[in-house]
Design a protein around this nucleic acid. Sequence first.
RNA 1: GCGGGAAUGCCGGAGUGGUCAAACGGGCUUGGUUUAGGUCCAAGUAGCUUAGUGCUUACGAAGGUUCGAAUCCUUCUUCCCGCACCA
Length: 876
Amino acid sequence: MAEINFAEIEKKWQDAWEKEKVFEVSEKSEKEKYYVMEMFPYPSGEGLHMGHAFNYVIGDVYARYKIFKGFNVLHPMGYDALGLPAENAAIEAGVHPESYTNKAIKNYIEQQKMLGLSYDWNRMINSADSSYYKWDQWIFLKMLEKGLAYRKKAPVNWCRKCNTVLANEQVHNGKCWRHEDVEVEVKHLEQWFLKITDYVDELLDKIDDLDWPERTKTMQKHWIGKSYGTEIEFEINSEKWSVFTTRPDTIYGVTFMVVSAQHERLMELVTEEKKEEVKKFLKKLKSVSEKELEEMEKEGVFTGSYAVNPLTNEKVPVYAGNFVLAEYGSGMVMAVPAHDQRDFEFAKKYNIPIKIVIQPMEYEITSEKMARAFTGEGKLVNSEKFDGWDNKEAIDEITKFLKEKNLGRSSVQFKLRDWLISRQRYWGTPIPVIYCNECGIVPVPENELPVELPKNVKFGKGNPLETNEEFVKVRCPMCGSNDARRETDTMDTFVNSSWYFLRYCDPKNSSAIFDKKKVKYWMPIDTYIGGKEHATMHLIYFRFYTKFLRDLGLLDFGEPAKKLFHQGMLHGEGGIKMSKSKGNVVNPDKVSKKYGIDTARLFLLSLASPDRDRDWSEKGIQGTSKFIKRVWEFFEKYSKADMVSNPPPFPSPTHPDGGMNSETASNSQNKWFAHQFGNSSKRLESKLNKAIKEISENIEDFRYNLAVIKVRQLFFTIEEEKEISKKDLESFVKIFSVFCPHLAEEFWERIGNERFDERGEKRELKGESGREQKFVCLSSWPFADESKIDEELERVEKIMEKTIEDVNHIIGMIEKEVSKVYIYVVPGEIENFDVGVLSDRFGKQVEIFANNDKGKYDPEAKARKAKPGKPGIYLE
RNA sequence: GCGGGAAUGCCGGAGUGGUCAAACGGGCUUGGUUUAGGUCCAAGUAGCUUAGUGCUUACGAAGGUUCGAAUCCUUCUUCCCGCACCA
């Protein structure tokens, strides 16, 4: 068998697709649009690995399928090019983020092209390009204008040696990533926020309408975290502090308060003599990361201040605690140790009194004997005028009472907080704002956008942007004073990914963020594919941005993506996470060289349902490789018989330029192949149409693994058949092409759909119809003719298989040598059994009788066992 | 800690209230083809039992709902994802 020259075939078709602009689309089409996209990647210096490839192939199969089904398919790709790793590379290796990123992008594009993906490369986006981030800045200005961008103090991780803010990822065990001896400090800085909370109700309510995985929708709901409760005013040092609680019924049981250790105004509460102690406690905070805080032991320290309970006028101590979120509610909680487990543990630890205010119905609890908080229902006690109330009813009643006294009010709280977008870093979108001593915060005028990142900056100490004086020192656009200072914070890179899907619709527009008409045509995204790790952040941010842009009047819809699909993670061999440090990164280039990229594609998709995690396996791909070779050989055999007498009139992969001469070409190409094609049997037609129907459904539902199985089975059926019609073999090639596009194009060409007209002349391709014939990927999806599906045939085939299995079973069981097989069938079924087929399968002589045949040979009366669908068997 | 998932033969996985648990692939065993190896072909691959049958065991563990559970509920174990400055 000839080796398959994958590299040559892949290159040939990738070039052809590109040259003929096969996947370039425009909104000027009669066809119905379909927008499918995968989340754009951060172009890391480590390059593309198989996990990425898997993600893109999932989208590619879907896009190709939709093209087949007659849609005008937008399938774009871009690069989320701004981000921390490029900056880390600058600090550690002295590479400028721009060159690092450009190199990485170049590498990504090259690798992605090798995967044979159906992207419209014309629409490629690079978020690090100022022509893109200009519009990030533009959106920011619009938000500022609408009051959705504002400044507020917020905690950050600070390393005093780097003299800069650290990302959570740059904090290792509370120490700086570059200075193992430096404990990270928590500092408060003025930062920019986007008021996503203005959209909180819509973000929550519209989740139900989305065709997204339920688990993701649930996660978003919990993340937004709407809860109803009561805001209660406590007085501390003659100042009002309101706290949010869902349990106002326990207000008489408050024995202390806890303010978040990261609260902006914490120090206002700390008395002079407690300052040292509190500062010492704050030093223990390892980073601002909530995950780390939650994993720390719950601890606190007394601030020296007391809060006055508005209903009892009791004074209770105020603690600073590491387990209270600064951003939720007011950053302070009232603690009721008798009825909240966390408060209970805290009270036990610091010897704070426990006061029971709810007694259960069936038994009595006492504060001395309590082993844990009582969180169940019961009657209020020690609650003055509310004694005896059912605690559930008391919730409303006490809230009402507080409201009357002007000491509180019912309130709704969300876990979702405003989006902190300020980053004290270089490789991000500059925030287009100028600070003027006279005019204050001045937005950069729209016509001065983009505010470009200056190339000349120093890395390693402080915020790089501050090292470029030309950038920082500017004239105030308002008053003209030369004393103004440019904002040196850049934006969170999630900003860039919050609207890129809109830019794909009109990627080169330099006068507007996008053309409304183009966006109206393509949007919303019909199917969005990406990892589940984005369930709560990116996938909420992009919904927020869409709603904001709608309210600006640019869009007429509020949800960016109708359908969402999460692909599973690809792990390395043996289930180990793929990473450079573990040395188990599977590189698509290498796999491609060894097995062909189509083989890798098919293997990844056949492993498991695409939404499940899977492990790469060298042995596994070998199995797929075997199948691919077999398919190749089949199509090769189709032309081999003729090669003896007639060289093929098309360039074969082994003879790139060979085989072309006018004499052979003058043999009509159809005639040339005619004798190889014939009529498909009823059996083949049945199986083919069934396969088309089921494979279509499977692809539609992202059950690619099941589709692949059916493709394999269909191929085996075709292999078994003596002849096949050209149309039916074409159907197979079409289906095969969504998974293995390069090989399929090759087969398509070979079975005579390309380049030569009836006279053997090279066909001039004009317009779309020409392209459609030239490329299998632009032909149309085979129609599933359900009238040709013969279930009876399938049933009969099963009976045959079962009979064969039974015979083999018996042969394996009995001692004696078997030379003849006798089969006794009920009279109506006798035509289902084919002596020739059966003797072939057993390699033995076979005789078949009707069980009522008087002349039959049946020494052990096995004919009696014959039932419909289950013949009697005798062996000797 | 909080929120969301997952667990099925030797392995990867199908199957989400009954018709069939293990489709399909891989591995392994036996036999055939082959100069040999690979390829390829055939049969087998929980246990007992039987001329093709029947029974038992079996879907992470333990309970529960149901006439009936891999599938629904509860608790637990292990693993994965996210937790707001990684993207």
